[in-house]
Design a binder for these strands. Structure first.
Lengths: 206, 206
DNA sequence: TAATATTGGAGAGTCCCACTATCCAATCAC
DNA sequence: GTGATTGGATAGTGGGACTCTCCAATATTA
């Protein structure tokens, strides 16, 4: 399959495929001569994945590259690879400062939920930022609501973990792509559940 | 309070505050002369809200303006105002095409969950895109997983709805800001719950 | 009152990002 | 052999979010 066929298959301009090649999001095809390379189904799947990550998931090209690299070559320490991979996804929190307690809100929240508090994990910074943003905007999250959210998300996580593959490479792919691709589904479902509940409570319009 | 004090209070350059004024994200101060206006706590709060929306929540200036306008002046039809307001938030799905069944995956999903299917609601398009993206990327969501996510998000929505204020203006603010500000919290909590579950299953590193 | 600083307002400029277009010499395909 | 296509590199484009520069009209300060 030549580049024009590959581009047509995925529905992208050839120039864009070349761009992804240059940016390292797509591995080069098998070169058969100085001006010819052949691409296969792997390239098609990869391109679809790239489009999913840069489109609906909303990653920048840089972020997508970071995620894909970790999926392509996970380190030998599964725990830290998972942490880094998920940390490469947006929204991405700030770096931990020099303060003795860099993430006070997140720490308090996690302790009250009885969960691990590992300040190196990027999602802790995300949580801190999100909690601070809500409070700054005048809608702080009550401890009660936080507890409810924590219980519910723990249930979601337990479900996902039970289905995680045992083999490390597959586990990283499952975790990263599951996080990136399923989060939008969860958010859409929550919004629709709000609508459903609102209809039941407020009655149908018109 | 003059503009420089306002900017200092929120920690922004004066130029940026002027930019938000121009873009309609911040209402003008009370003009006391041709070159003087005074700003109050309302402006401080508003600016913090704008920063929360354009920062952690990730809205563009356009999106933030749309959201804030709906919060500022909700229509008389609460149901449609809520729908439009939440629809103004990202990721924002595509327009419904001319097809007889524009959102096949989303419709099937909602029907299997026993929820309302209203193709005018923007989150339906979001769900369609998210489901399509997952499938395109080679990780389609199984009906079983969808059912689980649906049950869990319904529980979240029920909790939120119970706490929605009765007065329309407050209800719109609660719903829109709750959606925009609490979604990042939920995502961070889910990622942390994954980590917590992973530690329990894989054991601590090192 | 005179000198200095600040303000509101508007326009232009900057920087980054995700593409997109143009070239070119080396093949291919007919 | 001749026109089309390719890989590869370089440059250009359009959008978004600021950021800078001016300016005349005040405020503030000396």
């Amino acid at each position: 399959m030549r580049i024009s066929a590959l581009a047509a298959e995925v529905g992208l301009p050839v120039a864009t495929v070349k761009f992804y090649l240059r940016e390292g999001l797509l591995h080069a095809g098998a070169a058969s001569s100085a001006t010819q390379a052949s691409y296969d189904d792997g390239h098609v799947r990869r391109l679809r994945l790239v489009r999913a990550l840069t489109g609906p998931v909303g990653l920048s090209v840089q972020q997508a590259r970071a995620v894909l690299q970790l999926v392509d070559e996970p380190g030998d320490d599964l725990y830290s690879t998972l942490g880094r991979a998920v940390g490469a996804l947006p929204p991405g929190g700030a770096e931990p400062g020099e303060a003795s307690d860099p993430f006070p809100r997140a720490r308090a929240a996690l302790e009250s939920l009885g969960q691990v508090y590992d300040p190196d994990f990027a999602a802790v910074a995300q949580l801190e930022r999100a909690l601070a943003a809500a409070a700054d905007a005048g809608m702080p999250i009550s401890p009660e609501r936080l507890a409810h959210y924590g219980r519910t998300t723990a249930e979601l996580a337990a479900y996902d973990l039970e289905r995680m593959p045992a083999e490390p490479h597959a586990a990283v792919e499952y975790t990263v792509l599951g996080t990136a691709l399923y989060e939008p589904v969860l958010l859409a479902l929550r919004r629709l559940a709000h609508q459903d509940a609102a209809v039941r409570r407020l009655g149908r319009p018109g």
